[in-house]
């Protein structure tokens, strides 16, 4: 069990989905609920571990994701 932590800034997310498409491990998905701006923000899939590769951070145009290593 890795302890990498994804720090989501939910209100910054515009549901573009680039992070989900570029995550090699299928760790990310859209939430069913909305953020303050009416977007289905991105969240971590329950029970899936982040490997810490940072590709989501790199492609996110909205600075809505940070990846913190253990």
């Amino acid at each position: 069990m890795s302890s990498n932590r994804i720090n989501f800034k939910e209100d910054f997310c515009k549901s573009c989905g680039l992070c989900i498409k570029h995550c090699p491990f299928g760790v990310l998905e859209f939430s069913t609920s909305f953020n303050a701006f009416g977007n289905h923000y991105v969240k971590q899939v329950d029970g899936k571990d982040c490997k810490g590769c940072g590709r989501c951070y790199i492609v996110c145009p909205d600075c809505a994701i940070e990846v913190l290593h253990d």
């Binding site: 910054f12 515009k14 573009c16 989905g17 680039l18 701006f37 145009p61 909205d62």
Partner: peptide, 8 residues
Amino acid sequence: KNHYCPGC
């Protein structure tokens, strides 16, 4: 939060 369109 930036003002750009999604995916810009």
